[in-house]
Each structure stands twice: as C-alpha cells, then as structure tokens.
Design a protein around this nucleic acid. Sequence first.
DNA 1: AATAGATGGTTACATCCGTAACAAACTAGG
DNA 2: CCTAGTTTGTTACGGATGTAACCATCTATT
Lengths: 144, 144
Amino acid sequence: MTKLQLEAFLPYRLNRISAAISHEFRAVYGRHHDLTVPEWRVLATLGQFEEMGAKAIGHHSSMHKTKVSRAVRALEERRWLKRRECEDDRREEILSLTALGRKTYTDIVPRAVAFERRIMTALGPEAPFLLPILDQLEEIFRVP
Amino acid sequence: MTKLQLEAFLPYRLNRISAAISHEFRAVYGRHHDLTVPEWRVLATLGQFEEMGAKAIGHHSSMHKTKVSRAVRALEERRWLKRRECEDDRREEILSLTALGRKTYTDIVPRAVAFERRIMTALGPEAPFLLPILDQLEEIFRVP
DNA sequence: AATAGATGGTTACATCCGTAACAAACTAGG
DNA sequence: CCTAGTTTGTTACGGATGTAACCATCTATT
C-alpha cells in the first residue's frame, strides 16, 4: 500500500511557502499603502519601465489580461497611474505612473529590497544555492 | 533612483514557480480524475491517515476550515468520502475514504511520486540543496 | 479599397475564497 | 445543574479570478 506524505510533497510545500512569503510581504507594505498583489505588480512594472501598454505589463509580470485591466483601473482611480493614447496603434494605451504613484513606488522598493535581503540572510549558508535552483525550476517549467 | 527588477524578486519568482508546478501537477492527474487542489489535499490527507475530523484535515493540509468543508462535501457527493458520527464529541464527524475514494487515491499517488521525481531529476546537481532550503524557508516563516 | 482574420483591451458570468455570523455541542466556574 | 464561554462545522456575503464574448482597431490578402 503506497502512501504519500502530503507535508513533504514538493508542490504542496512550494505552494505553502510561496503563500506565506506573499502574505508576509504584503504585510510589509500593506501597513503603509493598501495594495493587492496585482496592483503591486503593475506598480512595480511601471516603476521599472516608465511607459508600457497593458499587454506588455501582463507579459512581464505573468498576469492574465483581465487581472491587469482591473489593477490598472484601480491604480488609475487612486491617481497613481495615468493613460496616454498611443499614436501608432489606437487600440493600445500607454500607461505610466503619476508623481503620486512614483512616490509610492520609491517608498515601497526599499522595503521590498530589505524584505528580500532579510530572507537571504536568514537562509544562512544555504542562501547561495537558492537562486540557481529557482533558475532551474523556471527553466524546467518554461516559466518565461 | 532605486529600482526593483520584478522578474528577479524572490516573492514573485516563488509565486510563479509554485503556480506553474501546481498547474502542471493538476494536469498530471486531471486527465484521469477531475479534482480541485483542495479536494486533492483532503483526499491525500485521508489516504495518509485513514480517519480524521475536518479540523485535523485543515490543520494538516494548511487549509481554511471553509475550504475543507467545501472540499469534503464535493468528495462526499462523488462517493469518494464518507462521514461517521463521533461518539466522544457529537460536533465532530469522522471522515474516511470509501473504497472508490481509496481507488482514486492509490491511482494518483504513483503519478504524484513520479511527478516529484521528474522534477528532482531535472534539477540535476542542484537537487540535493532544494530540500534543506525548503526546510529553512518553512522555519523562517513558521509554516507549521 | 474591401474584407477576413488577428490583436489590445474591457466586461458579463460563473466559480472560488476568506471573513463574519451562525447553529449545535462541549466545558468549566459558580 | 446552569450559565458563560469555547469549539466544530456550515453558510451568507463580498471580493477576486479566469473563460468567453465582445468592441474597436490594425494587418494581410485579394
């Protein structure tokens, strides 16, 4: 009779760890700015690239276009993001952060960096092995 | 001007990898048995422990009690799970798999084990470092 | 230039999920 | 006992999500 230890099963463990880290990270910035994860990803992408269409944001941040669409609208309503018509292709709208949005971004980024460093430090001697393993896993599952 | 590379940010990468692995694993058994992730977790937990209350299942599989409640009902409707009254405490119901449910379980477990081994093999020389790192991460975030 | 198909983006719908409220049953202090 | 508080489990509700349908616009073929 073959059994499986769920608590040792790789997909289960990764899912749990990922959820715990996302939850913890959201608490890091959530105390100051109330943001959902999709909103944070759009903010982070626009903070990184200045100007982008919704499609490109979705591609870069691995989000479904409806998720992007809703996050963009939410950020726009908060005046953290503005749209500009694209002259080359009038279906597309070029998105960018407002001054207010950029202020939020520059406030969160140091917290994000510190959060990440806190994890790497806590990992101790195992830390150098984490990133190559993540590279490998992304390659195995063709996560672009 | 500090920026953040979202695609290199640890919470983001872990979330993406975890989602990809869950998706891939669901495809492994989903072709044969249609199951949601919570249903699979309840099935796996009862396959492992024979008899359990809903509370204990939730604790062992890290699921909210409402998630457990709904998954249990779905499995019960498929006749993969049965309830039995607990004499010591009549609030609780003791849950266990039916013969049909156990058949599904013993069908899925080898696929799950093979899936996990496929990942570990694909990881190659990095593989031995993965499990200690997961242990560490679970400890850091007090994932029980 | 006209039409057919492809593409960027939004929205309706169904589903899933957690919070909060709840019922039923247990426990402990008086 | 009996009442107050706790615990197990279900459910109503609001919020989030993906599928599919949709609109507007672009592109390619004729």
